[in-house]
């Protein structure tokens, strides 16, 4: 799957309450493209089978 085109990203940003100009949309898209490999690796990575699916474990780690 490729990153959505600038028009789609601009529409999404507008729907979410952000008014950003075309230049920012292009920069935003470039940043998303730049991290897409790392994010794709994470999407494909299996979750650990020991309950780590709940992000609350991340906060609990800091309270023990």
């Amino acid at each position: 799957m490729s990153v959505p085109d600038p028009a789609e990203l601009a529409a999404l940003a507008a729907r979410l309450g952000y008014r950003i100009d075309d230049e920012v949309v292009l920069a935003l898209r470039a940043a998303v493209v730049g991290t897409e490999d790392a994010v794709a690796r994470l999407r494909a990575r299996p979750l650990p089978a020991d309950g780590a699916a709940d992000p609350a474990h991340g906060d609990a780690w800091l309270r023990r």
Partner: peptide, 19 residues
């Protein structure tokens, strides 16, 4: 601004990765 378009499932997957 790139954070605007981060899908919720990716943000939550990132928090799982934190664990």
């Amino acid at each position: 601004s790139q954070g605007i378009v981060t899908p919720a499932v990716d943000y939550l997957r990132a928090l799982q990765f934190r664990v």
